[in-house]
Simulated assay, not measured.
Amino acid sequence: MKVLYKKILDLEIWHDYYLGQPNPPKPPPTGYDISDMLALVPTPECLRVLRNLRWLFRPQPRGASIFAHVEQASSGDFATLLPVNRPEQLTFWLIVRDRYFANFTNLPLTTNRHQIYYFSNLSLNQGHALFLTQPLPNYAANSEYHLGQLVHHDGKTLEALLYQASASKNPNANDWDILPNSQYVSELDRLPQQGLSRIYTIPKANPGDIWRLTLVNVHEQETFVLDVTTPITHTPGDAIACSLNFSGQIPGCYKLCLNNIQVDRFVLCDPIASKDAFALVEIVLNQSLVPSAFSLLQPQDGNTLIKPKTYVIRCKNRATRWRYRYEKPHGFSAASLPNFELIDAKTYATKRPLGLRLQPDSLLTDGKDQLLPAPAIALIKPETDTQAHVTTIFSDIHL
């Protein structure tokens, strides 16, 4: 008997440190390999679901792929051998393997161990690819923007070149770098990371009040319920603390509701299992919730037809000012270095941040038209103002 497997999903991770910003955006070239830097690892719960569905997970140079055990339907399409007739989710840890990842990736320099990045096929973020990230915000006048922040404006992606306490009515070319329109990992993709237990405080309660605390998963299903009755001895109007134990819940994005009203949203995971994870990727298999463009499956006549898709997580490379330092005076004047800011007799730096690249498209030249090396990623040097806002990030090159 012939056993037939078909690819149903590609999970790809694109990183501009390796790819640059091609215009128009396009998929990575042949030979692109991100596996030494980032890895997708199925959670134990995911492996259980895959096994029950008779699907296979395989790491790939660009990320990972999933293959389904299929048979040919009467229509000529391929259907999963076992119908997918109930909501499921596939969860993966995204593990960073490169210790310099934060140096060359355009994400906040400060990390928060109580937060984790979260990517989902419920993001509704469709452009030149099916992105698992949240859509970037549109540019808004008078808004505060930090260095490196990404926004959309007039069909382009803009990157802030400096901290802006209150942005101008229209983007100023001196303040923003203009990139081809694409979607990237951003701060909007971070959520609180919740462990297996917590204390939730109801701010105001009266004796005899009945409260219901519930967890709601991505399928809008309640997976945890705790009913609390305020003791008769409770002081009217005082807060009441409730101890919540989420043991047995599978990793994923949840809403915490109090009497059916959402009071929190977070990624629930065992801190031990997720201690090395940069992100959780959650792929929802639910025809009633997943947009058709993102759907891997299509029910038909009792079968589940496969609709193979490619999902993308794209990271922007960090832009820094390249600062060249000489052991002896370099002898250049400001006039002979038009593309640089002359800092002192031994130092000059690019006026604008430049994206760090594994292989730059071109190298800079000094005042004598000699090629200058590009910076390494091992060391970046941020500078801050009196309010601790990062104002610039240097990459130093010693000559």
Rank of each mutant, 00 (worst) to 15 (best):
V3Y: 15
L9V: 14
D10W: 13
L11F: 10
H15M: 08
Y17M: 09
Q21S: 09
K26V: 04
P28V: 09
G31A: 04
D33Q: 05
I34G: 07
S35M: 03
D36R: 15
D36E: 12
A39N: 06
P42Q: 03
W55P: 13
F57E: 02
Q60K: 15
R62F: 06
A64T: 11
F67Q: 09
E71Q: 05
D77T: 06
P83L: 15
E88G: 02
Q89E: 12
T91V: 14
W93T: 05
W93F: 11
L94Y: 11
I95W: 12
R97A: 04
D98H: 12
R99V: 13
Y100T: 03
F101S: 08
T111D: 09
I116M: 12
I116F: 04
N121T: 11
S123D: 01
L124G: 10
Q126M: 07
G127P: 01
A129F: 06
L132P: 01
L132F: 05
Q134P: 02
P135W: 04
Y139M: 03
A140N: 05
A141S: 11
H146C: 10
L147V: 09
L150N: 12
H152L: 09
H153Y: 15
D154G: 12
L158A: 01
Y163N: 07
A165V: 00
A165K: 01
S166H: 02
K169C: 01
W176I: 07
D177S: 14
L179F: 10
V185W: 06
S186Q: 00
L188I: 07
Q193S: 09
G195Q: 03
L196V: 04
S197A: 01
S197P: 00
S197R: 06
T201Q: 05
P203N: 05
P203K: 12
K204D: 02
A205R: 00
N206A: 00
P207N: 06
D209M: 08
W211T: 03
T214C: 03
E222S: 04
F224S: 04
V225R: 10
V225T: 11
D227W: 06
D227C: 07
P231I: 10
P231V: 10
I232C: 01
H234D: 02
H234N: 02
G237T: 08
A239D: 02
I240R: 06
N245Y: 03
S247Q: 08
G248E: 03
L256R: 11
C257N: 15
N259A: 00
V263H: 06
D264Y: 14
R265E: 13
F266V: 05
S274H: 09
K275T: 08
D276I: 05
D276L: 08
A279T: 06
V281D: 01
L285T: 00
N286F: 05
V290N: 03
A293F: 02
Q300S: 12
L305S: 03
L305D: 00
I306F: 02
K309Q: 11
I313P: 02
R314H: 10
N317L: 04
R323G: 08
R323A: 11
R325M: 15
K328L: 05
S336P: 01
P338N: 03
N339C: 04
E341D: 10
D344Q: 11
A349F: 06
K351Y: 13
R357L: 14
S362A: 15
K368H: 15
Q370M: 07
P375I: 14
I377F: 14
P382N: 11
T386F: 07
H389T: 05
V390P: 01
T392S: 09
F394C: 10
D396G: 08
I397P: 10
H398D: 14
H398P: 03
L399W: 15
L399Q: 15
